[in-house]
């Protein structure tokens, strides 16, 4: 990517950001401009130019976003917990098999 191309990419992104209504900005206050929010980096060439999804979250996504995204953490913790349960149950089965084998020996 040449410098000119990069500069134009940045401009497009900034235009898109300016067009998007800022949620954080107070009325009458200017939203922080440029890439200060860390979204745009030189590595973002693929996603930066694509359209930021604007559709309303629905279904599972909406559930995960509720309560400051707390339910996402719950989902992660439950996945880990079920993984551990599966592992414990598997170890039990292996022990059962070995115990039977040892009883016959």
């Amino acid at each position: 990517m040449t410098t000119a191309e990069f500069a134009s990419a940045i401009t497009i992104v900034q235009d898109a950001q300016d067009a998007r209504p800022s949620q954080d900005a107070e009325p009458g206050q200017e939203a922080p401009s440029g890439n200060s929010d860390g979204i745009v980096t030189p590595y973002d060439s693929v996603w930066a130019n694509s359209n930021v999804p604007t559709q309303q979250p629905s279904g599972l996504e909406a559930a995960l976003l509720k309560e400051d995204k707390l339910y996402t953490v719950l989902a992660v913790v439950l996945i880990i917990w079920f993984g551990i349960l599966f592992f414990i149950a598997r170890t039990d089965r292996k022990l059962d098999a070995l115990e039977n084998q040892e009883r016959q020996a």
């Binding site: 707390l70 339910y71 719950l74 913790v77 439950l78 917990w81 079920f82």
Partner: peptide, 13 residues
């Protein structure tokens, strides 16, 4: 297993 799953879920909800 069931008890702790309920506890974890309730802990968040």
């Amino acid at each position: 297993f069931v008890w702790m799953t309920v506890v974890i879920t309730a802990g968040f909800l």
